[in-house]
Amino acid sequence: METLRVDNVHKMYGNIEAVKGIGFSVKEGEIFGLIGPNGAGKTTALRMISTLITITSGSITVCGYDVATQGDEVRKSISYLPEDAGAYKDLTGRTYLRFIAGFFTDNEETDKMCQRGIDIANLGDRIDSKVNTYSKGMMRRLLIARAIMTAPRFAIMDEVTSGLDVMNAHDIRELIRDIARSGVTILLSSHNMFEVESLCDRVAMINKGEIIMQGTPAELKARYNAKNLEEVFIKGVKSVEQST
């Protein structure tokens, strides 16, 4: 069963076409990677999927709901973690999680959801410190906890380990694996090819607003006769540049 279906989607910013008829699908329980160079249209695609910006043409379906016409239903099913996202700095980690939980549940359920978030974040006593005292790694853990504690059917993560040190990035990747094992479908974008290769079941590469390849990491490596996904990425981008 498909959790996400993107069909021939275009996005225009004035006269500029940022996304040119992309199409891909993500199966339930899958970790799907969206890769591509800077300005390729990854964030625009993720923003359209998460109902943040409108679609110029084409269609996106999330968990059976149409993004353009059933935005409220889509938002109940997803959790979006933007690149470099932050939290309200004057709140503590706990009050932030409780604030978010309040949109999904009532009373006792809010406490349970909040506790789940606290467990996922695993920040110890610092969960009661103000967010503006958190390190980047702590902030990322809190935000992932925020995104996952609501038990979404579909999690969308943009550059989830961007700017983190090796240890923190490793911890976050382990956390994503655990989340996927619990049955959450994940769509993530990343510049870290090692991360994509180690986490994703399938990958799509976007360049200049178009999907130029998609498949499992193994299929793509075989197709481009490459040792790793980074090589696939470089060869893929160069082949597009040569053809244009």
């Binding site: 943040l52 979006y80 973690l81 470099d84 996202a85 939290a87």
Partner: peptide, 14 residues
Amino acid sequence: ENKTLETLLTLPVK
């Protein structure tokens, strides 16, 4: 600036 708006707008709230 803190990119909290993007999170807020993807929550199930009108």
